[in-house]
């Protein structure tokens, strides 16, 4: 039980770090371009909403782990957070207004910073896979993206 609680404290701290970095990034963006999204009290409220929904999503995902339906058990935590936020935002318009005061691109830079740090030890593993797989990867990624886009384009044109 104690270990479980400790884990939640850790999640809470990491999330706090995450929203603090978003705020920092949005401030730096303003230094570079004063025209970008301003930091207001609404932004702070938005950041706390993001924090709240993330924690709720973590809670729901942990609860689902106890349910004996593999689909729900394996559903990614990222998905639960999006769904929680979607439901809350559909119920209360305020959350939408507040969260949109947080600059979208400012959320992405800190994430990719940590993503970069997290993969450095795998760079060495790259040498183990052949150039052929690398080439295939390019076509695999283009494949899924372009075929989806073609279907979507066709469908949207039909829908008018």
């Amino acid at each position: 039980m104690k270990a479980g609680l400790n884990q939640y404290v850790k999640y809470a701290l990491v999330l706090l770090l995450s929203i603090a970095l978003i705020l920092f990034t949005q401030e730096i963006k303003l230094v570079k371009n004063p025209e970008s999204t301003p930091v207001t009290w609404l932004t702070i409220a938005g950041l706390f909403s993001l924090y709240l929904f993330s924690m709720m999503g973590i809670g729901i995902s942990q609860m689902m782990k106890k349910i004996d339906i593999s689909f729900l058990r394996n559903f990614p935590i990222l998905g639960w957070v999006s769904i929680t936020s979607l439901v809350m935002c559909l119920i209360f318009d305020f959350f939408v207004t507040a969260i949109q005061a947080v600059d979208f691109l400012s959320i992405t830079t800190p994430i990719l910073t940590f993503a970069g740090i997290s993969v450095v030890d795998r760079l060495a593993d790259l040498r183990k896979s052949s150039w052929k797989i690398g080439l295939v990867a390019v076509f695999v990624f283009i494949g899924t993206y372009v075929v989806s886009a073609l279907i979507a384009q066709f469908g949207l044109t039909l829908a008018g």
């Binding site: 999330l15 970095l21 950041l47 999503g57 999006s82 992405t108 940590f114």
Partner: peptide, 9 residues
């Protein structure tokens, strides 16, 4: 977990 606020967004 660092990505979660983005998912909430």
């Amino acid at each position: 977990f660092i990505m979660l606020p983005l998912m909430a967004r």
